[in-house]
Design a protein around this nucleic acid. Structure first.
Lengths: 199, 199, 199, 199
DNA sequence: TATGAATGAGTATTCATTCAT
DNA sequence: AATGAATGAATACTCATTCAT
């Protein structure tokens, strides 16, 4: 399995740093190869083409993020707690790797449309995690069930994504993790069983 | 004023169609010129360079969207109604121009980072509109005031943006306007004054 | 006759200034038109094309230079005096018009080969002037007659041309007219009847 | 060292032929690449840009000319002989390579001013060679020392340059080497110690 | 496995010139 | 005579990918 060979990881990690520091359009394969300490041609022994580096990078890093979120959330009791943990872990992980945050929120989005469809595939795994929490919340009767489920998980992801993107565009000058509580509160209230007066 | 000359609009409209149909990276200036029925060189009488077409396109179209939303919302009485009108108008406008939806949600994001910062400038106008509604809602005592205001408006925009992007990526196969009610409900509840039991 | 209309001269003079200040390759027709205070299209009522402006400029200015040299030299008695006057007048005239010096010595040489052939035509008039002085010198028995005549006049022109070009390239920081005496002395000696010991 | 790789020389030599045959402005990089038998992109492995090809060409060829002249002149005894050898070798070398003559005398001068300043740098090496001969001649008491030295070497170069340029513009229809003796005679007399009657 | 020299497709932009007014 | 908006041809350079060693 190529993914476990050391050069595979070297190249992925080099790509994150090179793209974060130079921007997507100034990150030539030769620059990534140099940073990774391998020859240009070697890249093509581990990746089909340049796009494949980016997809692999996203799968790899986002996969780790999702895995981490799963770990953290399962140890919580209620859906409400799980949701808070999800938002916090998501924010913490990206706050912990400035380069990765730039790459996922800004640079990778400059890739072509096809790549973005593949990125969306990776995000389906994230949607599953959100889905399970929504399920639990509904069973716990703290989340209502009268909203389009697929839509809701998109909205939740969209909120977090927008919050992080803004933080990256503001050059990470404030603490994004501090916003987790408000985002969580907004979501929890949004999903709460409607009071009599509402609707 | 160049912006009012007929060729200016011709070129912008041609750019929307060409980019939507061919994708950002296959939309050569010559292709846009041909579609607009002008010579390649004429483009440069109205726009500084290719990027300037895209910025102008976004300013023009997003400006119209914001303006339309402002018109529609001011005719509503309550903040809750205004917010529904905002989401609905946003969705309706993009649903009414399939090409534009593809361009704003997918293609324009492939532009370089600098262009994306300029796009963000345009969106500040949208943020102001959301802000005013939030203000009213708080005065009406239907929105709570214990959440980070700047964050909240980002979250609202992020929700709508994600919903529309998903709809475009699903090739606009369902009716996005149908989702406005749920998005609105989510937001309204999210912002509602917390019930005793919550928090 | 177009050459006597005021706009003809306006355009020529504008061209000299624009080319001297911006360089040959940054001297667009539109820039010359603007400096001359006419519309772009008006240029083409007085000149066949851009090249024609440059040829006319050279004919006009170099023609004046040659005419001036003829005037000055005819008032001198001997070939030796005439030659000194020729060199001095040539240097003085270009020293008096810094813009023109830059244009004739540096910028116009960047024109295409065809233009340079036409410029050579203009210089034939200069060669005639030199020729007459050589003739007189030979008759006066102060110039020898054992050198290729056509070659000699080229050599004399080449000396002056190189001296002025160097002065322009050194940004006209020294007084070129001061060099006239040495150039003259070199030529006069070079052409002098050989002494016994030589050859 | 790139300058010693075979492709470097291939490209330089191809450039000389292509420019001589097509003229400076019709010598596209792709044309030079084709003639050299390499891909367009390969050019840029050896040269920074198109201008760099031309500078390198001039440095390379003019460097060889100067070197050859140094070799030939050092084997001569007197300054007078050395000067004749210099003029003859200069003329012979360019007569031996018709393409190169066209390029150095006509085409390269159409380059922009910056390039021409760099060309002047190369020519300083030539000036040094002339200088040494002038030195010797003064020590031998056959050259006078009452003329501006920097000016004199410019004049000598200017004479040779003009003679060759004329020969190239006359399509090399006569034998330029035949003119060496007259040029030499002119210079030698010009520099000779003045006879009583002069000055 | 690894290398890195070589490849060659692809495109935004300028500016001399025209011509309807 | 004069205008100036419109035209459209023409080209250097980059960089992902290959393949002989």
């Amino acid at each position: 399995m190529k993914k476990n060979k050391p050069k595979y990881k070297q190249i992925i990690d080099a790509a994150v740093v090179v793209i974060a520091e130079n921007g997507y359009h100034s990150s030539q394969v030769s620059k990534i190869a140099k940073k990774a300490g391998v020859a240009d041609g070697t890249i093509y022994l581990y990746f089909k083409n340049k796009e494949d580096i980016l997809i692999s990078l996203f799968q790899d890093k986002m996969g780790q993020l999702i895995e981490r979120i799963e770990q953290e959330t399962t140890s919580r009791q209620t859906a409400e707690e799980k949701l808070l943990t999800l938002v916090q872990t998501h924010f913490e992980q990206l706050a912990a790797d400035h380069h990765l945050a730039i790459v996922t929120q800004l640079e990778l989005r400059q890739s072509n449309k096809e790549l973005r469809y593949k990125i969306n595939e990776v995000l389906k795994g994230y949607m599953v995690v959100i889905d399970q929490i929504l399920d639990e919340g509904i069973k716990e009767k703290i989340f209502r069930d009268n909203l389009n489920r697929k839509l809701v998980r998109q909205l939740i992801f969209g909120m977090m994504d927008e919050a992080i993107t803004n933080w990256v565009m503001k050059e990470q000058r404030y603490n994004i993790v501090d916003q987790a509580k408000d985002v969580h509160s907004f979501i929890i209230n949004g999903l709460a069983l409607s009071r009599d007066v509402k609707e």
